[in-house]
Design a protein around this nucleic acid. Structure first.
Lengths: 168, 168
DNA sequence: TTTATATCATTAGTATACTAATGATTAGTA
DNA sequence: TACTAATCATTAGTATACTAATGATATAAA
């Protein structure tokens, strides 16, 4: 059985969610290609390195929270990075449940070229756009994120369940 | 060996790429939760349904292009949706390589509640933001996407390789 | 102090993304 | 026409995301 009804249309092109997602995908693709080509690291590895440059010795849980993924998702990423010699797990002496993660000199030496990639993407992405429009966009997106988080938290407060989001 | 050097810092918070990605993730999470709770479909299923509502009978390749994923990625998504009775593969009579995909009445009947979810997210995300800021943001993001695609295409033209982006 | 609860990292299972390779079929060229 | 190219859907292999469950440990409560 196949539908023949005329359906209500949804205006994707003018939806902020749609446009934000398209733009995010464009950033991810360009940046990932740039990082692989020039540095030999992936986008998810950039995120971990960027976090640890600011705060060395974070636990896996802390890194996951800052990057915005689940702890379980981070495990194989850390596994691979440790195998590739980009970082090292160090068991904490006072709390044996946790690992503290430290970048190796190899990762350190790659950090500058990673930043160059980031700045290159940043420069090209902003071509022919006024600085004031960039600032308005940044501020608007920050407000939107805050609104969405508040909306999700609202749901959680009404019925106090565990976690309920799945990305697939 | 562990790094002790003072590293150059990268200003994530003021990077458009970082903020766009954070916002996209917030949209994806809220919308996915909303769709599952109220309709029982996933975000990727919403994308496929939304595409087919506008143009019934697209091939898998065409859907993949519109959604912005690879054809291979779409296969298991279509598999699952067919199994769940949301759509049907129909072999094309004049070109036996392709399937044409049609929504079932079941999917049609869910479309309105999907739109309600989308509008709900949209309303909450825009709370306390002026319409003119939303419009500037939309226009700026469209320009950024265009710039990034142009930048990627530039790379491809210089060295005519196959495809080179990988999302991990 | 003993018991219950919470936390961290890991594993298992599933979904979604990619590339590369395959088979079937079509289109283009010699 | 026959041969080569290209195209579509699929499969296999890998990476990244999630939830749920596990074991080890730490904290809180009785």
């Amino acid at each position: 059985m196949i539908s023949t009804l005329s359906m209500i249309k949804y205006d994707f092109e003018n939806s902020v969610g749609f446009v934000v997602n398209t733009t995010a995908k464009a950033f991810q693709r360009s940046f990932d290609v740039e990082l692989r080509k020039n540095v030999g690291v992936s986008l998810s590895q950039w995120r971990v390195v960027g976090t640890l440059v600011l705060q060395p010795g974070l636990t896996q849980k802390e890194i996951a929270d800052k990057v915005g993924i689940e702890g379980a998702t981070l495990v194989p990423i850390i596994d691979k990075m440790e195998k590739e010699g980009l970082l090292k797990r160090k068991p904490d002496s006072s709390d044996r449940r946790i690992n503290r993660i430290y970048l190796t000199p190899k990762a350190d030496s790659l950090w500058e070229s990673m930043i160059e990639c980031a700045l290159r993407i940043r420069k090209h992405s902003a071509k022919n756009i006024s600085e004031s429009d960039i600032q308005i966009t940044l501020e608007t997106l920050r407000k939107i994120s805050k609104n969405l988080v508040a909306f999700s938290d609202l749901d959680k407060t009404i019925i106090p369940v565990k976690k309920t989001h799945r990305m697939n």
